[in-house]
């Protein structure tokens, strides 16, 4: 009995995969046995996977994936860095918060894709367009989480640091920013998923390369299997980015948070 419990405990991390397997089996069977009306628009999982390997082997998927990945990484990194930097300043200095918050609040409600028509005219159709949109979509969540993170640090930490001889900049870099990290990481994790959604949308609307563009071409050719392949890639990448930031957060804050 004890042995079984130990085995079950060891298997436990893998239990989450079981529902996915069940889902895939139901999908496969439903498509194969024509349980879903309009089978043409509903390929079985095995066919989707076959197309996945086909697209991968011909390099189509790789090229488009790398184009999207580069845009996401560039936009996300730049947007997050800018958000953290401005967030630290606005969170730390009340005068900066009071001066900049009205402007930031004005731009915040505009959805990232709402900028697209304007950016199309200003930037044109090139690599900078999706990167700029991802920059905008990453910037605001990180900015607000950073401001909240910095402001949420108990003022007693600042006071005690001061009595221990720390200057303002030392207090900020050695105490306040590390303590704000959990909230900053929350913003980054939100961004990671968001950036992939935004890049797909931008590529579908205006850019001829990338996973979004591939999906749009597949739609015009009524290639449901390719669309699903793209969606799977999107889901997996969002998942991986979320886990990656989660892992980084854990590495940095797990010991004390």
């Amino acid at each position: 009995m004890k042995g079984v419990k130990i085995i079950l405990k060891k298997l436990n991390p893998g239990w989450g995969i079981v529902p996915i397997f069940i889902f895939l089996i139901i999908w496969e069977l439903a498509a194969r046995f024509n349980l879903v009306p309009g089978q043409f628009y509903f390929p079985p999982f095995s066919e989707v996977m076959a197309e996945f390997f086909n697209l991968a082997s011909t390099g189509v998927l790789g090229d488009n994936f790398l184009a999207s990945l580069w845009r996401v990484l560039a936009g996300l990194t730049a947007g997050s860095l800018a958000g953290v930097m401005l967030g630290v300043i606005m969170g730390w200095k009340e005068i900066a918060h009071k001066s900049l918050n009205p402007i930031v609040s004005l731009f915040l409600p505009i959805p990232p894709l709402g900028w697209l028509p304007l950016l199309l005219l200003w930037i044109g159709i090139n690599e900078w367009l999706p990167i700029t949109i991802i920059f905008i979509s990453s910037f605001f969540p990180v900015l607000y989480n950073t401001i909240a993170g910095i402001k949420s640090v108990d003022k007693d930490y600042v006071k005690v640091s001061r009595t221990l001889g720390a200057s303002d900049i030392k207090i900020l870099t050695t105490v306040v920013m590390p303590l704000a990290l959990p909230m900053i990481f929350t913003g980054l994790r939100l961004n990671a998923g968001h950036a992939w959604r935004v890049v797909i949308a931008a590529e579908m609307v205006a850019i001829p390369t990338g996973i979004g563009a591939l999906m749009l071409r597949a739609e015009s050719l009524i290639r449901i299997d390719i669309i699903i392949v793209c969606l799977i890639v999107l889901a997996v990448m969002t998942f991986i980015f979320d886990k990656l930031f989660g892992y980084m957060e854990n590495k940095v804050t797990a010991k004390w948070s």
């Binding site: 007693d156 930490y157 006071k159 005690v160 009595t163 001889g165 200057s167 804050t253 004390w256």
Partner: peptide
């Protein structure tokens, strides 16, 4: 400034730096 008064201060909540 407090940082140059050479005082030690024990706060009610002790406020140890949690990340150190």
């Amino acid at each position: 400034d407090a940082s140059h008064r050479r005082i030690g201060y024990l706060f009610q909540q002790l406020v140890l730096f949690p990340h150190m």
